[in-house]
Structure formats: C-alpha cells, structure tokens
Design a binder for these strands. Structure first.
Lengths: 118, 118
DNA sequence: CTGTATCCGCAAGGATACTG
DNA sequence: CAGTATCCTTGCGGATACAG
C-alpha cells in the first residue's frame, strides 16, 4: 500500500492516473511536449469543447503537481506561457506511446482487424 | 481531422483517450496485462471503490472496442474470464510506461525533487 | 489576453435489491 | 458467481458575467 498526499494507492499506476488522468490533462501535456511553449490562448484552441474554466482548472492542478511551468509576463495585455517541467518531460514515453497506439488502431480500422505485426 | 465512429478527433491522442481514458480502464488493462487472465471477482477486488456497476460498464466498453476478450463458461456457478485481445496487448508500452513514471515520481518524493537522471 | 466567480443542469456514478 | 435493474445523489463541467 502506497501513501501519497493523504491518499492510499495500491500500485503506481493509480498514482499516475491521479496525476495525468482526467479528461484533458494528457492532451494538454502532449501538445506542450510537441510545442515546448504554449500560451493560454493556444491551449484553449486545442479543442472546441475545452472551456476556460476546465482549462484553467487542469493547468492549476498540473502546476501544483509539478508537471508544468507557468511563466507570467508583467505586461499589458497579459501574456502567460506554459511549458513542461523535468517531471513533465519524463512523461514523453507515455504520451508518445499513447499517440502511436491510437494511430495504429485507426489504421487497422480499429475494431475489426487484427493489429499489424512489426 | 479524423473521423471515427461518428465522432471527430483532432489527433490520435484523442482517440486513445476515448478508448482507454476514464477512471478505471487503464487500471483494468494493466492488471489484465500482468495476470493474462482474470475472473470478474478478481477484477472487482482491484479497488474498493470500484463498484459492480462501474466494472461491468467499463468491461463492456473495452469489449465493444476490441481491447479485451470475454469468455463465459457454461457452468454453475458461472465463471467468466477476461483477457487482452491483440489490440489490448499492444497497449503494453503505454501501460508499463505509465507505471514506471508513477514509480519514479514517488521515489523522487514527487513534487519537490528533480527527476533522477539515468 | 488571461483569467475569477457564480449559478445551475444533468449525466456519471453510488446504493440497493434482485436473478439465472 | 457474475451480473441486471432501479432509484437517487453528487459533483463535474457548461454558461455567463466580470476583472486586472
């Protein structure tokens, strides 16, 4: 049994799910990984169903958990840049594996065809 | 823009999230990957907060999407075994990467320490 | 531009009872 | 054992207004 932040976990998979699970986090992290640095408005455009409230909420949690950096420029109009921390960057294997799998699944017509052998 | 099952996706990451996202699927798949074959009652014991309703629902979706097999033995009392399909097995890189990352994060005291160099 | 703050609807998910 | 079926609650997340 793992103790972490006042909660209990049965395996490290549960911890990972707690930190990058949820509806939007993996998507945000993946695009931050590709683009290195993104502004709030760029992240907002990732998906039409991603609302301001949700985006801000997810970004705050990712920041709190040490996965992304938030850099505010003291200027008008405001400018805020988001980027991955070292911990966030170590997620690359996870994220790119997810993306690759999705690609393969789509190419194989998903459901009805066996996965390709490589 | 990707079309898949009457829905639209902007990248394959979104497709993967649609198929293995959600609160329990990755955990279920990960343990199926480790144990090869698991009965319903074994899966139920994965987590105290995983209810029958949720487990059944997630299993049905995973089966519908071609990620797991469901084998029913015609006997009393009933016996049902779940296992990964070839598509499900191709998720191993994703799942083990997630598990590894969680381990590293925990060992590094998570938030406040830099990730280890390897 | 990059956010907060509220209000609020609705569907995800919990609890319970029942079944082949 | 491995589920359904049903009811009911909770809180996620949408909509809107406002601000530095």
């Amino acid at each position: 049994m793992i103790q972490f932040q006042n909660k209990e976990y049965r395996c490290s998979m549960e911890v990972t799910l707690e930190l990058i699970g949820g509806k939007w986090k993996a998507l945000i992290l993946w695009h931050l990984d590709n683009n290195r640095i993104m502004r709030y408005s760029e992240l907002k455009r990732l998906h039409p169903k991603l609302t301001q409230k949700m985006l801000t909420q997810q970004l705050r949690e990712l920041e709190r958990d040490g996965l992304i950096n938030r850099k505010v420029y003291a200027q008008v109009p405001p400018k805020v840049e988001y980027s991955l921390t070292p911990w966030g960057e170590k997620l690359k294997p996870v994220l790119s594996a997810m993306c690759q799998w999705g690609n393969q699944y789509l190419k194989g017509q998903g459901l009805h065809k066996e996965p390709p052998q490589e």
